[in-house]
Design a protein around this nucleic acid. Structure first.
Lengths: 333, 333
DNA sequence: TATGATTAATTAATCGTTTTAGCAAATTTT
DNA sequence: AAAATTTGCTAAAACGATTAATTAATCATA
C-alpha cells in the first residue's frame, strides 16, 4: 500500500489540500474552517492512515526536528549514558537525535559537523575535542543553535552545560588529605581543555592549603597512547622513585586503567594506597575495587543540554548560558 | 549568508537548473553536457559553496540515506559498542544512523518503529524485544529493508546477524566441566527469545553428555527486577540449599551482578567457585574479577548488519540471510 | 539534398506540504 | 437596503532537486 498524502485525503472529501493542511495542523480555528468540516477531515485522515511526509514538511519549513549530538566515543560509558538521557529527553519534545563520534580527533569532529549540517539538523550538542575551537566558532558565526557539553573553551560566547570540576576535584583531594595522605599524585590528560585544567586547579588548590603541592606529582598522559602511558606512570610512581600515598585519577578511563595496573602489581586500595577518581565505572561496584569517585549528574546534564538547545531553537534570540551542575564525591561503592 | 541552491548556481552561469543538476550528479556523460560547461559548473558550485538540500532530494527520490537502529539500551556496553561499529561502518557508505532505545519494552519498540518510519529511514537494524514479533512481521509486510541483530524469532523469514549461541554456550559449559565442576548452575533471563533458548540448550547439551543435567539448577530471572532477582538467586544457590560448584551467567548484565553478589558474600572465583559468562564487561579486566567469557565479535556483527542492510536497500530483491558469526570462549582476562 | 543520428541544452512536471492572497456567500452593521 | 464584515473555503506559489520529454543545432549518411 502506497503512502497516503494530504492530496489523497483532500480528493476523497472533495476539498482542497489547503483545508486539510490547516485542520491537521490545528490551525483551523484562526484559519476559519468550520468545525463540521474539520471533524470530517480529522476522521478521514485517521481512517486513511495519513502520515505527513517529513521531507516535504522540512523542505517547506526548513526545520528537521532533529538534533545533532557529537561526542567523543559512544562506547565509553560516560558518553553512552549521556547519549541515553539526551535521547530520552529530546524524544519528549518530538526531536530525534543523530549521534556521531569524534574519537577525540579534531579533524573528525569537523567532518561530523559537516555531515550533520548536510543532514540539516536544527541544532547541535557537542562535546568538543581539544583543538576544535575554530569549528565551534564557525557554527556560532553561522548562528547555529548550539550547546557545548562537558567541556568548553574560554574566550567564546556559547551555551555550556558541565559540572563544578574545580570544586569537585578539591573535594576529592580533600578526602585523600583527610585520610592522612601527604603525597598525592594526579594523573590527567595532557590537554588544554578548560574542564581538565579546572580539575587540576582543584587538586592544586586543595594541596596548596596544606603546603603539600609538588608539581612533580602531576603526571600527564596522552589519549592516544593511554594504555602504555598508564602502565608506565603507575609503575614508575609505585616503583619508589617518588614516594606517594594517594592517587587522584582524573577520568573514568584513566582510573580504570590505573586501578587495573595497581591490581596487577598486587597493590590493594585502600589498604596499600588510597585512591579517588573522577567519574564512575561499572567495575567500581565490586567490593575489591571500591573506590570513592566524583559522581557527575549525567541525567541532569543531558536534560539541561536538551532544554537549553530547544530554547535556542524555538526562541529567536537567547543569550548564551553557562550552567555548572554539582558533582559530588561518592565515598561508598 | 543564506543557503546556496542549485538555482543560484544556474542563474550565475545563465544556464538551467537541469544542467547543473546533471553535472553535479555525475550524469553529464550520458546526460550529455559538454565537458566545457561541466567544468564551469563544477567550479562555480564549489566557489559558491553549494551544498545540496537533502530534504528536497529526499522528497524527490523518496530516500533519506538514513538507517534506523533500534537497540535495547545504549548505555549497556554491549549495545554501545555495537552501535559504535554500526555507525562507523554506515558512515563509510554515506549513511547516517538514528539510534533509539526500547529499554526491553515491546510497546516502546513499536513506538520507536513509528518514530523512525516517520523520519523515513531507508531501513532498519533491530535488536528486537521479547514479544516484538508482530512489529517485525508488519515491517516485512510493508517490504521495509530490515536486519535483525543479536536476537531473532523462529518462523519468520528475515535477515539476521548473530552468533553461534548454542556452540559457544556448550563450549563455556565444557570448560567448567573440564575444570572438574559437577553441578553447574545457569542463570538466564526468563524469555522466549530464541538466542537465549539456544544458550540454554548449549548448556543442557554439554551437561547431558555426562549425565550431569539437573533442571533445578537453571535459574530464570526477570529483566525488570534483575537486581533483586540476582541477589536472591546467587544467595540461595550459595546458601547451600543446592550444592553447586560452577556458575554460567548467560549475559553481560547477569554476570556483572552475579559476580558482584559473590564478592559481597566474600566468595572468590575461581578459588571458591568457578564461573564463566556470556559477553564481556569492563570489570572483567581486573585480576581479582577475571572470569572466562564468551567473546562476541561485536565489530564484525555491526559490520555485517550494515552490509546486509545496504544490500537490501540498494538491490531490488534479496533473499533473507541468516548469518551466524563465531563467538569463542576467552579463557584469559 | 533530404534524412537520420548525435550532441547540448532547456522546459516543465513532480515529490508533499504549507501558507498567502483572494473569492463568494452569509451575516452583521449602519 | 446598501455597505461592511465575517465565515468558509480554494488557487496557486513556494521550498529545492531530479528527470522525462522536447527543442534546436550540428554532423553524418544515403
Amino acid at each position: 500500500m502506497a503512502r497516503v498524502s494530504i492530496k489523497d485525503v483532500a480528493n476523497r472529501l472533495g476539498v482542497s489540500t489547503a483545508t486539510v493542511s490547516l485542520v491537521l495542523n490545528g490551525k483551523d480555528k484562526d484559519g476559519r474552517v468550520s468545525e463540521n468540516m474539520a471533524e470530517k477531515i480529522r476522521k478521514e485522515a485517521k481512517a486513511m492512515n495519513y502520515k505527513p511526509n517529513n521531507f516535504a514538511r522540512a523542505l517547506r519549513s526548513g526545520r528537521s526536528e532533529t538534533i545533532g549530538l557529537i561526542i567523543a566515543d559512544i562506547s565509553n560509558p560516560f558518553f553512552s549514558h549521556l547519549a541515553f538521557h539526551i535521547q530520552e529527553h529530546a524524544e519528549r519534545f518530538g526531536y530525534s537525535v543523530i549521534i556521531t563520534n569524534t574519537n577525540e580527533d579534531t579533524a573528525k569532529m569537523g567532518k561530523m559537523i559537516s555531515v550533520l549540517k548536510s543532514r540539516q539538523v536544527d541544532g547541535f550538542i557537542i562535546v568538543p575535542t581539544e583543538n576544535g575551537k575554530k569549528y565551534i566558532d564557525e557554527l556560532l558565526q553561522d548562528q547555529f543553535p548550539l550547546v557545548l557539553l562537558d567541556r568548553y573553551f574560554s574566550g567564546i560566547n556559547v551555551s555550556y552545560v558541565g559540572v563544578n570540576n574545580f570544586q569537585a576535584s578539591m573535594q576529592a583531594t580533600d578526602y585523600l588529605l583527610k585520610c592522612g595522605c601527604k603525597r598525592i599524585a594526579l594523573v590527567i590528560y595532557k590537554t588544554n581543555l578548560r574542564h581538565m585544567q579546572e580539575r587540576r586547579d582543584g587538586y592544586v588548590a586543595a594541596l596548596a592549603k596544606y603546603d603539600l603541592y609538588d608539581s612533580r606529582l602531576i603526571k600527564e598522559i596522552d589519549y592516544r597512547t593511554i594504555v602504555n602511558d598508564m602502565n608506565r606512570v603507575v609503575f614508575d610512581l609505585m616503583a619508589g622513585k617518588e614516594k606517594i600515598d594517594g592517587f587522584f585519577f582524573s577520568t573514568n578511563t584513566i582510573s580504570t586503567l590505573g586501578l587495573k595496573k595497581l591490581a596487577e602489581l598486587n597493590i590493594k586500595t585502600p589498604d596499600d594506597i588510597k585512591a579517588v577518581c573522577f567519574d564512575k565505572n561499572d567495575a567500581f561496584d565490586f567490593p575489591g575495587i571500591a573506590i570513592p569517585f566524583v559522581q557527575q549528574p549525567i541525567h541532569e546534564m543531558g536534560k539541561r543540554a536538551v532544554e537549553l538547545l530547544i530554547e535556542q531553537m524555538t526562541r529567536q534570540q537567547v543569550l548564551p548560558v553557562h550552567e555548572e551542575l554539582t558533582a559530588i564525591l561518592n565515598k561508598f561503592s
